[in-house]
Design a protein around this nucleic acid. Structure first.
Lengths: 343, 343
DNA sequence: CGACATTCTGAAAACGTTTCCAGAACGCAT
DNA sequence: ATGCGTTCTGGAAACGTTTTCAGAATGTCG
């Protein structure tokens, strides 16, 4: 190794090891002269402190782990991007691990994180997360912030801080809007009925029907595995049913694509024959003709908020800051929804 | 800390520290009995080795750095995802850092990587990368693999291994195809004229014109800052020019969106009035009506190949394996290109 | 001029691991 | 029994830091 250590710096400056360390880290008792000579020597030798050694001594690795099912999914990608930006500004590096929704991979990552002494963890667990993984995540003593998921039920002690999206409110607003247009048979395609976003959406969907006093038989729910599925087959099945739903709420990045293709194949024009409502974070929704009315929430804000919460915990210990943030979902009106066709 | 160290394991097993270490790491001389007692003790105590301490001793951190301009860009997200999968299977963790195309951030990341003794680095430098950053990246002695970028010119010694995409060939094929359909005025919108992908595409574009012996005046190049730009204004300007180009090659994730919107605003129908050709890695291209003919290359393969090259270097030292991979680009024919309108 | 508080400095311990080296135990032939 | 080679084991050094603690220098005041 050509690496220059703090020992070399001390030697070059003609002072002791410990003085050099103090001088560089701005310790309490360090004379101006000493500080000057040491920093000069460090500069000249191109000294870069070794974080590994420092971490070993201080117990803090300066790294944050991020556990998501798939970084390639734009949903997570934006979150990761925003979190990384904020965290690196604070001097941390971000370690990402894909779980591919595989409990084994997930747990392996949790163990790896723990072994590297990461200072904190952002996690959006998959559907099959077992308790062992949660324990491994918590074991290191590092603060954990949950991304748009429910915390494990059986946490005896302090509940886990989390950043949540108001999917329920969003779905309710969307459904209300369609009901207001006159729709009575609406289908909801959403990923992850076994996870928080899907569950909440379904709940909001039903709430809107209930509060309008409409026959709940018109509310068809069609859960998908992942937001990356093209729900093409399911969409076709829905459109072939009798009576056919007059509106589709397709809440997934690719589910919308599948739904639109299905509509085209069945020669249904949007919005005359079929109203379509989706999520707005994709180019497709904005550019499609007609432009797709959509629910939208701020992905960057999830990442940023989560990073912020984590940083606060790292500074103030478990005490500081709110432990739960709920981010709003907006309904962006565009051109893809209209009153149902008159039979 | 409630952490259990190897010292505790040794004590519990009634052996010495070094024996415990050897037993767990499968060292050379270790009796079956010893191995059994030690692993049993480790198991019982739930021992998790501390990678930090190990890294300090061995010099290998078990982590790979990845430096890209924006993980939220689907282009990079897929690459990162694939690389992470491969690397974690090999026992490494992936540290990602966004540069946001900011040389300062880029260099800060390079320094941080070096300080943490990362074992290897994947990097897609931005346009403004300065030599200092390259030196910082190389300084740690860790192998560096470049993602679809040119290596720095002034590397005296061994050239850097890189994974490249054949953008030139792709652009040439696309242009040839359009010329074959009869187009003579074609506009190319591509990001990053100052970086490899853009440069190569422009070169391929011109090559196709040259080899067809067509007046190069028909080849309009319209460079964009980033693939995430909506080139809406530029597209409008192109469509308003006289004579108007009869085909648009929009090689960016969002550039296509901007181009399509511009075409719609000018009441030009695709492909009758205007042929459009794009990149195929987005849902938009596949689902749009008409479906967009597009260039496509395998993003996952970039990440996987890069990871593979890196792993090989890590195993075999600088000697092993090829130092340059060129990945093909395919032209996927769909519905958005047709002969130019007859005037 | 001596005592003492104050600021600064250096030696050494610690973080948890791997690895070098010397020595112990053992078997086997002399 | 002694010598010797082989296999195993334990003590200790090392990795590069930070931090504790005691001691040195410096100044201040009686």
């Amino acid at each position: 190794m050509v690496e220059v250590t703090i020992r070399d710096v001390a030697q070059a400056a003609g002072v002791s090891l410990s003085s050099a360390s103090r001088a560089l880290n701005g310790g309490r008792h360090v004379s101006a002269r000493l500080a000057r000579t040491v920093t000069a020597a460090a500069e000249k030798l191109g000294y870069q402190p070794d974080f590994l050694a420092r971490s070993l001594r201080t117990g803090s690795s300066g790294m944050i782990g991020c556990l998501v099912s798939d970084v390639a999914n734009p949903l997570y990608a934006s979150i990761v991007q925003a979190a990384e930006t904020r965290l690196r500004d604070a001097g941390y590096l971000l370690v990402v691990a894909n779980t591919a929704n595989d409990p084994a991979r997930e747990q392996a990552a949790a163990v790896a994180f723990r072994g590297r002494r990461l200072d904190g963890i952002l996690v959006a667990p998959g559907s099959g997360t077992n308790d062992k993984t949660w324990r491994d995540l918590a074991a290191g003593g590092a603060p954990v912030v949950i991304l748009d998921r429910d915390a494990p039920d059986d946490d005896g002690e302090a509940s886990w801080p989390s950043v949540l999206v108001d999917h329920r409110g969003g779905a309710r607003a969307a459904t209300r809007y369609l009901i207001g247009l006159g729709h009575r048979r609406i289908a909801l395609l959403t990923p992850g009925a076994r996870m928080r976003p899907g569950r909440e959406r379904i709940a909001g969907f039903h709430e809107a029907f209930a509060e309008a006093g409409i026959d709940a038989a018109g509310a068809r729910v069609c859960p998908q595995e992942s937001s990356m599925d093209f729900a093409h087959g399911d969409a076709l099945a829905l459109l072939d049913a009798t009576p056919r739903p007059t509106a589709l709420i397709a809440l997934g990045t690719r589910i919308l694509a599948g739904a639109l293709r299905a509509a085209r194949e069945r020669r249904l024009s949007v919005p005359q024959d079929l109203s379509v409502l989706s999520v707005g974070d994709t180019d497709l929704a904005a550019v499609h003709a007609p432009a797709i009315t959509a629910l939208r929430w701020n992905l960057e804000e999830i990442g940023r908020t989560a990073a912020e919460m984590l940083l606060q915990r790292l500074r103030d210990g478990a005490g500081g800051g709110p432990s739960r943030a709920l981010l709003p979902v907006d309904l962006v009106l565009r051109e893809s929804c209209a009153p149902p066709p008159t039979p």
